[in-house]
Amino acid sequence: MKKIFTLGLIVINILAYSQIAMNSGKQSNRWTFGGGLGVGFGSNSYFNLQVSPRVGYKITDQLEGGIIGNVSWQSSDYYKSTMFGVGPFVNYYFARSFFIGANLQQYFINSKEKFTGYKFDTDETALYLGGGYMQSLGNNAFVQFGIMYNVLWKERSSIFSSGFIPSVGFVVGL
């Protein structure tokens, strides 16, 4: 719980600092900060918490590149697992409301079955391609809605149930 709280404070501080760095809606630098937070519940006491911080740099007014991380904790009556992912991303923005992007993630996963004690450690590479819509929240802050597809996904060998992932996140500094 301490790790989750600490990570949450770091993300809030980054967002607050980047908001202060903006002067009257005018961008003072080319750095962008943001990320997403997800929570899921299900049957058999399933619980999932996911945190995805990101840091980017505006190469041009339309092109942004950076690094994104992903930490996910899952638990149910039968197992618990932790997944950590990290990798570069690039987004191209057009018409100030839309974007297309690519995101390469290297995931490291460890899981443990609660009844047998069986431990499972693996890793997987994902290359997500997709795009979406951005809504301005004011002062160079945006919420992003999108969908991406992992072009490296294989049904029989992937730890993920599908190649498609929806995405919702916040970005400050665009």
Rank of each mutant, 00 (worst) to 15 (best):
G138P: 04
E155T: 03
L137M: 13
S162C: 05
I159R: 13
G163E: 01
S161C: 00
I147V: 15
A141W: 02
I147R: 02
N150G: 02
Y149G: 05
N150Y: 11
L137N: 02
S136I: 08
W153H: 14
S162P: 07
Q135W: 10
L137S: 03
Q144F: 10
I159A: 13
A141F: 06
R156T: 15
S157H: 07
I159Q: 14
F145N: 01
F145R: 00
S158M: 06
L152Q: 03
S157L: 05
E155G: 04
S162V: 04
G138V: 06
S157D: 13
R156Y: 14
V151L: 01
G146L: 01
F142N: 12
E155D: 11
S157R: 09
N139H: 11
L152A: 02
W153S: 06
G163S: 00
N140A: 14
G163C: 00
I147K: 00
L152N: 04
I147T: 13
V151F: 07
V143C: 06
G146R: 00
S158G: 06
M148A: 06
I159K: 13
M148W: 10
Q144E: 14
G163N: 01
N139R: 11
V143N: 03
F160K: 00
G146P: 04
S136G: 14
I147H: 05
N140C: 13
Q135V: 11
L137C: 04
S158N: 03
A141G: 08
L137K: 03
Q135F: 12
S162L: 01
M148S: 10
F160N: 03
G138H: 05
V143R: 04
Y149E: 06
N140R: 14
N150P: 11
N140D: 13
K154D: 14
V151Y: 05
F142W: 13
S158R: 00
N140Q: 15
S162Y: 11
Q135N: 11
R156C: 08
G138N: 04
K154G: 12
N139W: 08
A141N: 06
Y149K: 06
E155W: 08
M134K: 07
G163R: 00
I147A: 15
W153Q: 05
S157N: 09
N140V: 12
F160Y: 10
A141Q: 07
S157G: 07
V143T: 10
N139D: 14
G138Y: 05
I147Q: 10
F142K: 04
M134E: 07
I147D: 04
S158C: 09
S162I: 07
N150L: 02
M148R: 07
I159T: 13
E155R: 10
A141I: 04
L152G: 02
S158T: 06
I159L: 13
K154H: 11
S162D: 12
N140H: 15
M134Q: 10
S161Q: 01
V143A: 09
S157Y: 11
F160S: 00
G138F: 06
V151C: 07
F160T: 00
S161T: 08
R156A: 15
G146E: 00
S158F: 10
S136V: 10
F142P: 02
N139C: 05
G163P: 07
G138M: 03
Q144L: 12
K154P: 08
L152S: 03
S157P: 09
I159H: 13
I159V: 15
K154T: 12
Q135D: 02
S158Q: 03
Q144A: 11
